[in-house]
């Protein structure tokens, strides 16, 4: 079972590389896509080393990218990470309220992962949804004009998704 998973995962990884024609210019695309399919939605040292070899760059280069960019992670992430925009258009349209609701509902502080490993939330800088503040991002999806009600609904929706493919 474990081997099968690893093989599947490796095949997925290879197809991502092929998709970008092994171009160094797409290092960040590759890392972002890999992160999506890797367990824990993070890039571990093994994967980082593999990327470096495949692209013909040093491991230091890959490691530097992983630590420089906020969208890349080296530590395991919660299954659902709510990213709350903290830039001024959202912050002053009650982004803090969003954090308060999440903190209360999930019983965690910012950056903490819930005991079941499902949820976490954090503040991030602007992701360009300023017309819908307060906005949150969940993976590649953006949800705007968040209210306590819509947040609770979203959390429920996530719980229902639990157990399905990432």
């Amino acid at each position: 079972m474990n081997n099968q998973f690893q093989e599947l995962s490796m095949e997925k990884k290879r197809s991502i590389m092929r998709c970008y024609e092994f171009r160094r210019e797409n290092l960040l695309d590759i890392l972002l896509d890999l992160q999506e399919v890797c367990p824990g939605r993070c890039i571990d040292t093994g994967t980082a080393g593999w990327v470096a070899r495949e692209l013909g760059v040093t491991e230091t280069k890959v490691s530097e990218a992983l630590t420089f960019y906020t969208m890349l992670h080296t530590e395991p992430q919660a299954r659902f990470v709510f990213e709350i925009c903290s830039s001024t258009p959202c912050f002053f349209t009650k982004a803090q309220g969003v954090a308060d609701v999440l903190s209360r509902e999930l019983e965690v502080k910012e950056e903490e992962i819930t005991k079941d490993g499902l949820f976490a939330f954090r503040f991030v800088p602007c992701f360009g949804s300023c017309a819908e503040g307060p906005a949150i991002k969940l993976g590649d999806e953006v949800y705007g004009n968040m209210t306590e009600e819509s947040l609770k609904e979203l959390i429920e929706r996530c719980r229902e998704l639990e157990g399905t493919e990432p």
Binding site: A65, F68, Y69, T70, P125
Partner: peptide
């Protein structure tokens, strides 16, 4: 070519 960033202002 389309190249992605990864969250750096």
């Amino acid at each position: 070519y389309v190249v992605s960033g990864a969250g750096a202002y």
